[in-house]
Design a protein around this nucleic acid. Structure first.
Length: 140
DNA sequence: GCCAACGTTGGC
DNA sequence: GCCAACGTTGGC
């Protein structure tokens, strides 16, 4: 299993809205960046991801699961952009802020810090475990 | 609202 | 294929 991080502006698509979709999940549309697209193409069913609120928020608020493999983005007319579906699995008991991530030496190489603008990022297993620990989340 | 970082576009 | 101009993202 691999780990990822999905960024969303809460004004556009929030964790609250994601959770309201329940187990059916939601396709992650609107990605128009090749690296982010390629990351989604590499995802497998059951891969886990953090849900991050950019701009307003700047914190990791929950955990999601990939529930549909990469497929054409329904909002794209050019045929070159894809998306996966994700569903909410759990809240972060304590949201982990960007400031906390930056302040933690163990997370200094996290893509959230080094590739600030990438909207769909890979997360290493040790980074995943550390963020879960910081957020008070066990069993993921 | 500003601006730095950085990805994309397009002229050559 | 290089690189300058431009547009967008996202932290502050």
């Amino acid at each position: 299993m691999q780990y990822w991080l999905f960024k969303s502006e809460p004004d556009v698509w929030s964790w609250h809205m994601q959770k309201a979709k329940g187990d059916a999940g939601q396709y992650w549309d609107g990605v128009r960046n090749y690296l982010a697209r390629n990351n989604m193409r590499a995802m497998k069913l059951g891969d886990r991801g953090f849900f991050y609120h950019s701009n307003a928020g700047k914190e990791i608020v929950g955990v999601v699961e990939v529930c549909a493999l990469s497929h054409p983005d329904p909002t794209d007319t050019t045929g070159q952009w894809d998306c996966v579906d994700i569903r909410a699995l759990s809240d972060m008991p304590r949201p982990v802020t960007l400031a906390e991530v930056k302040a933690n030496p163990a997370l200094k190489d996290m893509a959230l810090v080094t590739s600030m603008r990438l909207s769909v990022q890979p997360v290493k297993p040790d980074e995943w475990a550390e963020v879960c620990r910081m957020g008070g989340l066990a069993g993921f």
